[in-house]
Nucleic acid binder design. Structure first.
Lengths: 251, 251
DNA sequence: GCAATAGTGTCTATTAGACAATATTTC
DNA sequence: GAAATATTGTCTAATAGACACTATTGC
């Protein structure tokens, strides 16, 4: 059947953002409170419409800046800003009760930030531990407080984003996107521990990351911000894929 | 800014398919010839509009069946049919000169098939080696024949699909999706060799795949369809992730 | 000194990869 | 027998993980 440009089903296209960071040893996601129906008062992922002349990635970067003030890592400033990549697209016909919306979800990995501003409305945006947002993540010792699920299909989108982050830090250097421009091996290890939810041997971890070519570059400085013996400071090296990969302790 | 259902930018949403198979030791993709402008006469990936009440995955499965007669693997028939997964979404404002089209690309891995039918028009659909379709894949000994690039941004979509397939057979059992329901270790090895474009040691490969739990299940039968000593027949085991992974020989 | 974190060294069980050797078919 | 493929076995270098030990700070 030849396709007719004048008669195609109209869709709305949005971007939704899974923005992850590590705060106080916990993997956290950015959520905003919905001010109107449907799902009024519920938490949701930040996002919005793609403009008619705007690329998908540009729309995601724009929404990110609007909601958090955070900038996306450009080709120049390789060691500041957040990492952004496309995650997946969600287009179930019933996912939005008002109309047919196809949402192109994006994943953002950001260093720990001061509490976001959300265009001035500080009460309607917050960092929430993903364990508290996802049904299965509660664990046995979590005191039963199961908050309302995220609006729409955002729980599933968040779960997909978290799983992507967990698997991607295995074989890429993306864990450094959670760190400030300069960081110690211990800080990087705590990122892995928070994202994977496991404890790692500090000694083997140190040997492993410093021995992986291109992963870390020493800056010469040291810091004692974690207490104890001063630690060398590093920045992210040029490598994007890690060979050998970091191995997640077996399940 | 609250979002107004009555005023959103209208988009067309399509699905495009990267359908891969292995034929005569080569990784091949399904392409169709365009019968109308733009890019009239050029080869393109199969695809079409998502219907207004249709899920994205369902649209992809429908297009696949329409173009090839191939069925997608359901939850029941785990060892027949093709594997389908979402690949990525392409929405550059200029990617289609006629209008704003967002395409949700899907990846299909299929066993070797009789030449597809394309709704009866056998001249406008074919399997083409991906090396011949992708600019960089030509290699030094290919006799200079560089066919016209695929229409739209389909070269990039195809390249992304091929890369996804190459990396995914490392840590998942998806290589079996390229095989018939029963296959030998040698046939599976030739799939890996074709997809990665490398030669693998048959002896180490055999030990590796038969030793990975859940990857292969012997059916009891044997075959000599490859010549030589009869080989055991296997079907895909229940495992979806491979532990340990198959390692692509280093680059 | 004690507690905390950083960093190095060593041992062992496992594994990837090279490759010899044997098995079973077709011609 | 020759050629082809399948399958098992063996050896070696590299590696992951466990863990002892030392180093350097703040209290």
């Amino acid at each position: 059947m030849p396709y007719d440009p004048s008669a195609f089903p109209p869709f709305a296209v949005t971007v939704d953002l899974v923005v992850l960071t590590v705060r106080r040893h916990a993997l956290c996601a950015l959520v905003v409170r919905r001010g109107e129906p449907p799902y009024q008062g519920r938490w949701a992922l930040p996002g919005g419409f793609v403009r008619i002349e705007e690329d998908l990635g540009a729309a995601a970067a724009r929404e990110l800046t609007e909601e958090t003030g955070l900038r996306v890592q450009g080709p120049d400033d390789l060691h500041t800003g957040a990492h952004l990549e496309q995650l997946a697209t969600y287009g179930d016909p019933g996912r939005d009760p008002r109309m047919r919306v196809v949402s192109v979800a994006h994943l953002v990995l950001a260093p720990d930030l001061p509490t976001p501003t959300a265009g001035g409305d500080a009460d309607s945006v917050r960092w929430a531990p993903v364990d508290a947002l996802l049904p299965s993540g509660g664990g046995p010792d979590r005191s039963g407080e199961q908050p309302a699920l995220l609006a729409f299909d955002h729980s599933r989108i968040l779960a997909d984003g978290v799983e992507r982050a967990r698997s991607k830090i295995e074989y890429s250097s993306l864990a450094t996107a959670f760190c400030p421009p300069e960081f110690t091996v211990g800080e990087l290890r705590r990122v892995y521990e928070a994202v994977w939810g496991v404890a790692l041997d500090p000694r083997n971890f140190h040997r492993k990351v410093t021995g992986t070519p291109g992963f870390l570059v020493p800056t010469g400085g040291t810091t004692t911000r974690q207490g104890g013996r001063p630690a060398q400071l590093f920045r992210a090296g040029g490598a994007t894929v890690l060979n050998p990969p970091m191995l997640r302790p077996e399940v």
